[in-house]
Design a protein around this nucleic acid. Structure first.
Length: 507
RNA sequence: GGCCCCAUCGUCUAGUGGCCUAGGACGCAGCCCUCUCAAGGCUGAGAUCGGGGGUUCGAAUCCCCCUGGGGCUACCA
């Protein structure tokens, strides 16, 4: 049966050497979408055969990131499944078995070359400006010599015997047929001297054993695919369908997306790891939508896709073959779109941790803080690009005091400290004596005051805004005053008036 | 250096021989709304489809060369 007719089974094979980054997330998403689209299985397999770089924290981060993005896996760590274990290091006996099978069948050989010899060889090749690579020194060692070296306890690796002529064609669903000249391929190491398999062996063996039908992975794997094809053939196994995804470029378009935090010229830090996006206040649904569109398009106008639409519409045919640069501007816009689509309660729920982390709301959240947050959300909803923005944009709704680091911002346009102070004092008096502290009466009172003073509305509103929020930017003044509450408004007006008085005396 | 991939507005892309004097989105600019900022609405600037050869009545779309960019080149994945 051709693999395309079997039930689709795809996997991601992250290596727990560092936190999960945007590129890994995109690969995971495409695999997940492909599986869900075809009602297939999405599998997570942890490839931790590099014991020197292994990090338990990284492994936890990968799973946590996948969960945050809601890319649920059908088989893998924590959920297990019929083809386990799904932690590669627990499968080394299996890998060793298949390596010995290759040895028996003459598809592989033991190589006793020391790292020193390899390094020296490499240096010579570079000096002679030759192509670097293993010289197959041990490929045709006489059996007796192999035996004696082994008896002497000399460490060895197992290498794959590459065909020395002909070519290997990789059929790729995105790239088409890619031809590799066998003579240029190296006798790749399959088993390291520590007994652990390399990626090539473990990956092929496990993909086969786990019945993987489609291998969707980053384009950086294209060069090693002929090795994998040759391995499949050596075992006599059916090939999966390969599809190499375009890599993600850094926002500048120069080079692969960094795995370290991107710092702009102005010092702004941009997230790269999935957890950093989460901490920066991005919504998982926005991330999913953005990542999906990075290297894939459905038609000539749709930008916003729900998860269900993505599943329904995703196909390999829509995946572009050229690399895509990451755009924080577009992500930010999309994040805003998703924020505005959230119900006020849901948005409040998601913003809460950010306010708590900033120390503006206690943890656990007391009922009155929650009520206040619910009042604040409608005012800030369309102003947030990230959840974290609520701290900067709305902190004054929760803090007890606001400061005026630049007191001159309190001044009305074209007005001096004395005049502004007079306006503010009168505004304070009228607000205090208002029967009903609500938007309409506030607006009426303040507009008529501005008129009486012969000021433009903004000349009065801006000083009040700065007085009560400490900022020149806020939601509409009257709704802001109402949510702040009369007590807080009056206290802050008093402080501002005092501040203006000081400013008067200075000048 | 060798091998491999890629090439449409700044960016993500639509486009699979005629519907393209190249469409949409982000970003940018202007205007409207307006108490500031957003959000929203409208308008605009922005790509001779990297260059050169072919094929064809006709090419962004097919072929070749060049150029540019990227990836890989570990007892890492």
């Amino acid at each position: 049966m051709a693999s395309s007719e079997r039930r689709v089974r795809v996997r991601i094979a992250p290596s727990p050497t560092g936190p999960f980054h945007a590129g890994g997330a995109r690969t995971a998403l495409y695999n997940w979408l492909f599986a869900r689209h075809h009602s297939g299985a999405f599998i997570v397999r942890i490839e931790d055969t590099d014991r020197t770089r292994y990090s338990p924290a990284a492994q936890a981060d990968i799973l946590e990131s996948l969960r945050w993005l809601q890319l649920d896996w059908d088989e893998g760590p924590e959920v297990d499944g019929p083809y386990g274990p799904y932690i590669q290091s627990q499968r080394v006996e299996i890998h060793r078995h298949y390596a010995s099978l290759l040895l028996e069948r003459g598809h592989a050989y033991k190589c006793f070359c020391t790292p020193e010899r390899l390094a020296a060889l490499r240096r010579e090749q570079i000096a002679r400006r030759e192509a670097v690579g293993y010289d197959r020194h041990c490929r045709d060692l006489p059996p007796e010599e192999v035996e004696s070296l082994e008896r002497a306890g000399r460490p060895y690796v197992v290498r794959l015997k590459m065909p020395r002529e002909g070519e290997t064609i990789v059929h790729d669903r995105i790239r088409g047929d890619v031809v590799f000249e066998n003579a240029l391929l190296e006798d790749t190491i399959l088993l390291k001297s520590d007994g652990y398999p390399t990626y090539h062996l473990a990956n092929v063996v496990d993909d086969h054993l786990m019945q993987i039908t489609h291998v969707l992975r980053g384009d950086e794997w294209m060069p090693s695919t002929p090795i994998h094809v040759i391995l499949y053939r050596a075992f006599g196994w059916e090939l999966p369908v390969f599809a190499h995804l375009p890599i993600i470029l850094s926002p500048t378009g120069k080079g692969k997306m960094s795995k370290r935090k991107i710092v702009a010229a102005d010092g702004t830090e941009y997230p790269v790891m999935v957890r950093e996006f989460r901490e920066a206040g991005y919504l998982p649904e926005a991330m999913v939508n953005f990542l999906a569109r990075l290297g894939w398009a459905y038609d000539d106008h749709t930008e916003v896709f729900s998860r269900e639409e993505l599943i329904a519409r995703f196909s390999l045919e829509g995946v572009s073959s050229s690399p895509a640069a990451f755009s924080y501007e577009k992500l930010l816009w999309l994040n805003g779109v998703y924020i505005r689509a959230l119900s006020p309660e849901e948005l409040a729920r998601r913003c809460l941790p950010f306010l708590q982390r900033a120390g503006l709301v206690p943890d656990p959240c007391p009922p009155d803080s929650w009520e206040q947050l619910l009042r604040v959300i409608p005012l800030l909803r369309e102003r947030l690009h990230t959840l974290k923005d609520i701290v900067e944009l709305g902190g004054y709704f929760f803090s007890h005091e606001v400061g005026y680091p630049q007191p001159e911002l309190l001044l009305g346009k074209g007005l001096g400290p004395a005049e502004t102070r007079r306006g503010l004092r009168e505004a304070r008096r009228r607000i205090a004596s208002l029967e009903q502290f609500a938007e309409a009466p506030l607006e009426q009172a303040l507009r008529s005051l501005a008129e009486e003073l012969g000021w433009k509305a903004g000349q009065l509103f801006m000083p009040i805004r700065v007085a009560v929020t400490g900022r020149t930017v806020s939601p509409g003044l009257f709704e802001t005053l109402v949510v702040l509450g009369r007590e807080r408004v009056l206290a802050r007006l008093d402080r501002a008036i005092a501040e203006l008085e000081r400013l008067e005396n200075v000048s």
